[in-house]
Design a binder for these strands. Sequence first.
DNA 1: ACCCTTTCGATACCGGCGTTGCGTAATTCA
DNA 2: TGAATTACGCAACGCCGGTATCGAAAGGGT
Lengths: 211, 211
Amino acid sequence: MATAARRGRPRAEGTDDRILGAACDLLLARGYDGYSIDEVAQRAGVAKTTLYRRWPTKDHLIVAVVARIQDEVPVRDTGDIRRDLTAYLEAVAAGLTRMSRVGRPAGPDDRSAGLVAEIVAAAARRPDVGRAVRAVFARRNALPLALLESAQARGDLGPGARPDVIFDQLAGALYYRLLVTGEPVGGDYPARLVDQVLAGARAPGPEGKPS
Amino acid sequence: MATAARRGRPRAEGTDDRILGAACDLLLARGYDGYSIDEVAQRAGVAKTTLYRRWPTKDHLIVAVVARIQDEVPVRDTGDIRRDLTAYLEAVAAGLTRMSRVGRPAGPDDRSAGLVAEIVAAAARRPDVGRAVRAVFARRNALPLALLESAQARGDLGPGARPDVIFDQLAGALYYRLLVTGEPVGGDYPARLVDQVLAGARAPGPEGKPS
DNA sequence: ACCCTTTCGATACCGGCGTTGCGTAATTCA
DNA sequence: TGAATTACGCAACGCCGGTATCGAAAGGGT
C-alpha cells in the first residue's frame, strides 16, 4: 500500500487536504491575483514551510488544485460519432468558460481563460510542472480519444484519418479560441466545428454530393 | 502627426528602444526566469520609474517585446491551397519551436512554449493585455485568413466551409500541441493536418472516391 | 523673464515568493 | 531506554514587482 510505514515522524493526517482545500477556496474566491501562499498556509492552519515541503512552488500547488477540481466530462458512445462529439465539445466548452470566470468580476470584456492559461504558462516554465499538466490532460482526453478510435474501428471514419489529429483539430480549435483569440466558444460553434472536421473543407469534385 | 509637440518636457529619444532592446536581450539570454524589471532598467540605463511610466506591468512589457520580435511569416497564394497552407503551417511551427527554446538549456524533456505561454497567461490576467495580445495575433493571422477566403472565392473550398473555423482547426491544433500536450509539431505533422482538415475525417459513402 | 507641464532619476517602501536555520514533536529501530 | 529520522512551526532573510515621494531638468505658453 501507499502507507508504507516510513522511518521518522509521520505526516499529520489531512494536512494535504486542508491545504488543497484552502488553496481552492482562495482561488475560487479571489482568483489568481489575491491568491498568496502565505494566506493559503494561514487558512489551512499550517506553517509556510510545511506547505513548501509538499509543493515546491506556487505553480505546483495550482496544478494540484486544478487536477483535483477537474470535473469529469461525460462521454457517451451512442454510435453516432457526430452527435457524441458535439455533446462532448459542448460540455468541455461550458466547463472551460465556467472555469475561466473563476474569481473574476466577469466584466463585459473579460474573455480570459483564467486557470487554464495559468497552468499552461506554469507548464512552460518548469519541466516537472509540464509533465504533471500533460498527465492531467492525458487523463482528461483518454475517453474522447477512445471514442474516436471506436468510431474508426466501426468504419465511421476514413481509414487514413488519424484520431489524435482529429482530436487536435477539435480541442485545439476550442483552446485556441479561449486562450489566444478570446472568441466565444458557445452557441453552435461546437456543432459547426464537428461538422467541418468530419466533412472536411475541400470543395467536392464534380461527382460526389456535398454534405 | 504622432509628433504633436506636447506641453511638458519631451521624452528622451530612443529610450523606448533601449528598454525594449534590453528586455529582449535579457529574455533571449536568460528566459522568463532571470528576467527582472530592475535589471532591464539597469541595462537600459534608465530608472525603474521611467520604465513603469511606459509599461505599467512586466506583462505589458513582455507583450511589447513579443510584438516587436514577431517574425513575419511569409504567405504565398499560388492557387494551390493545400500547398500554400502546408508551407504556412510549417513556417509557423518552425518559428514557434524556435521561440519556445528561448533562453532555455534545451534539455531533452523540454517541449515548452516559452514566451507564447507567458503572453497567453498575461492576456488572461489583465483585460488590456488581452486586447494587446489579440491585436498581435489578429495582425499575424490576417494574411493566412485572406488566403483561405481567396481560396473559397475561387471555389476551392466548400461553400458551407467557414474560413475562420478552418483557421481555428489549423492554428488551434498547432498551438494545442505546443501549449497543452507538448507534442512535437515538426516533421510531416503540418502536411497531415492540412490534408485532414481539407479532406475531412468522415468515411466516404458508397459513392464518392476518397481523396 | 516667468509659470506650467511633463519627464527623469533616486530613494524608500510594501507585499509576496521562496529559502534557511533552529528548536521541538512524533515515530521507528536497536 | 536511547539514537536516528522525519515532520512541524517559527522567525528571519534576499529577491523581485510595483508604488509613492521628492527634487531636478527640459520643454512650451504668455
